[in-house]
Amino acid sequence: MNGSAIRIADLLFRWPRQPRPCLDIPAFEIAAGERVFLHGPSGSGKSSLLGLLGGVAQPERGAIELFCTDITRLSARVRDQFRADHIGFIFQQFNLLPWLSALDNVLLPCTFSATRRQRADDVRAEAMRLLTHLDLAPDLWPQPAAELSVGQQQRVAAARALIGRPELLIADEPTSALDAPRQQAFVDLLLRESGAAGAALLFVSHDDRLAAHFDRTVALADINRIDGAASA
């Protein structure tokens, strides 16, 4: 794959009713298939950046190109659809809809995106393949997500992010609820799966001990001209 997964140019963002902007990023780029570790302390604007990349927030100025599409120029509805089609998200804990089974949680992106449904082909078979691949025992699949352990939930969340092979995976502190040995295991799992799927991975965390094995490590403070601690 060539080209860039993410290209940010001249970005300025401020939350509504805030006097100062919280993000001012002249340039930031992630190549297609590249696996990047982005770290920064809490309050440094990580969530804001993810919101912008997801197309949930709009910048005051600048361009955010995802796979050569400037999503800031899309309508809100098209941005929502773009996110559904091209980005797989993994959050901290409470990633899953507690009242759906593990399997149904994995299938969720396919109900929102025809693109990912088509790429997955037989969606149920693909969901089962991913869950098997991520070592989740079949007897857990029909269980409500709320009854799974945190580690199991995170693997279901990973399977959900991966189904339909989105070109970009964004993980926001996905290991913060896991104990130390499992943290590294989960990071390795994500690196392996994104590599296998050929998807770019943006892994966001405040904990830079996890940064090993990534193609590149970036500190948010290095790309953001606004001092996060001062603006928080």
């Binding site: 509805r77 659809q81 089609d85 998200f89 959050f91 809809l97 507690p98 992106p109 929102f112």
Partner: peptide, 15 residues
Amino acid sequence: RRELAILRALGAGPG
């Protein structure tokens, strides 16, 4: 709130 945020991340619009 979590539930709604998850749906939002999956592509559900505010509408």
